[in-house]
Structure formats: C-alpha cells, structure tokens
C-alpha cells in the first residue's frame, strides 16, 4: 500500500489471536504456575539448607524402613510419570479410551505414593516419636523441615490425583481436549520433579552411611 507498510512488513508482524510459540493459554498458564511453584519449593529447600547449615544436623534415618520405603515411593512416582507420558501420547493420537486408561493408572500410582508416604509418616510419628515440633534426635528443625517440605509435596500429589481424576472423567466425555491432558501432564511431571529434589535432600542426606 505504502512505503510505511513495506517498512513494517520487514519486521515479523504479530498476527494476533492465536498462540505465540505455539503455546495455548492453558499450557502457558500452567508453565507460569510451575515457575511460581518452583520458587515456593526453592524457598523451602533454601530455608531447609539454611537451618541445616546453622545447626548440628542429625542423620537418624534407618535403611529400613525409611530409605527402602522412600525408594519404593520414588519408583512409584517415576512410573506414574511414564504412564502419564503414555496418556498424553494416546490423547494426541486421538486414542481416547487408551488415554483415559493411562490417566487412571497415573492417578493410581499417585494414590499409592500418598498411601506409602502416609504410612511412613505414621511410622515416624508413632514408632520414632518424631513430630514437627519435637523429635528424639536433637535439633527440632529436623522434624519441622521434614514434615513441612514432604507435607507440601504430598499436598501437591493429592491435588494432582484429584486433578487427574477430573481430567480423566471430562476428557472421556469429550468435554476436554488432548491439550488439557498434556497440561495436566505438565503439572504431574513437575510434582514428580520436585520429589527428585526432596528425596535426596530430605531422605538420603538424613541417613548415615555405616
């Protein structure tokens, strides 16, 4: 039309409305949520490191049951990430029933994790006498950081199981799109990834190598 337009055409002009970086609203929103949640967990882990460095930190966890249990929990959670990948892949290939099946397997793994973790908490409280406010090993910060960080993570897993359930039901009924399954997958993998920091920092560093 005019030179002005030619000059403007030289720079790629935003076409509006669609999805920049090929990322939809929900996916972008979930990524941003993950960024902010990362900051929250980082703050807690930094606080843990700070308190740990400032104190004479005990390493009381036994190989059995704590380490064995947490290792099994880690495996369960890793498996759930695998089944989640299958769910997302099936959804993108239009295999609705298959995707829903894998979603339920993922939720089941998450639930197993919560049950195992709950049992582990029960053991620590009941048998070892370790609570957020007191523990038999010395520094009170030990129990406080343990229960706060694993508790917040467990809260994320429980929320995630509910989230997966909603996605599974609504995706099966055709209310949700394959991308919604993928967005749920992002959340689930994130929760899994957080555990990959919690497991070594809270469990493995709290046992003494005999």
């Amino acid at each position: 039309m005019s030179e002005g337009h030619a000059a403007m055409a030289a720079e790629p002009t935003w076409q509006g409305g669609g999805t920049p970086l090929a990322v939809g609203h929900k996916k972008l929103g979930m990524w941003l949520f993950i960024v902010s949640d990362t900051l929250t967990f980082s703050a807690l882990l930094v606080a843990y490191s700070f308190v740990r460095a400032a104190n004479d930190w005990p390493t009381p966890f036994h190989f059995y049951p704590s380490i064995v249990f947490s290792t099994v929990m880690t495996l369960v959670l890793l498996t759930s990430s695998l089944t989640m990948v299958y769910a997302v892949s099936a959804a993108h290939h239009g295999a609705r029933r298959k995707a829903v099946k894998w979603l339920w397997w993922t939720a089941l793994c998450g639930l197993t994790f919560v049950v195992l973790h709950g049992y582990e908490w029960f053991h620590l409280m009941h048998d070892e006498g370790m609570y957020p406010w007191t523990n038999p090993y010395g520094t009170p910060g030990f129990g406080a950081t343990f229960f706060t960080i694993t508790g917040l993570h467990m809260f994320h897993v429980i929320t995630g199981v509910a989230y997966l359930g909603i996605i599974a039901v609504r995706y099966r009924r055709g209310r949700y799109l394959p991308e919604d399954v993928e967005v749920a997958g992002l959340y689930w993998h994130f929760v899994d990834l957080v555990w990959m920091f919690v497991f070594p920092m809270i469990y493995l560093l709290s046992t003494s190598v005999d």
């Binding site: 720079e11 790629p12 002009t13 935003w14 509006g16 990322v23 609203h25 972008l28 929103g29 941003l32």
Partner: peptide, 13 residues
C-alpha cells in the same frame, strides 16, 4: 502474563 502474551490484537507486536 498469559493475557499479554496470547491475546494481543492483530498487528500489536
């Protein structure tokens, strides 16, 4: 953030 990145009108770089 999502609004600013995703919902701009056509031509609004």
């Amino acid at each position: 953030i999502v609004t600013t990145l995703d919902l701009r009108a056509k031509g609004l770089t």
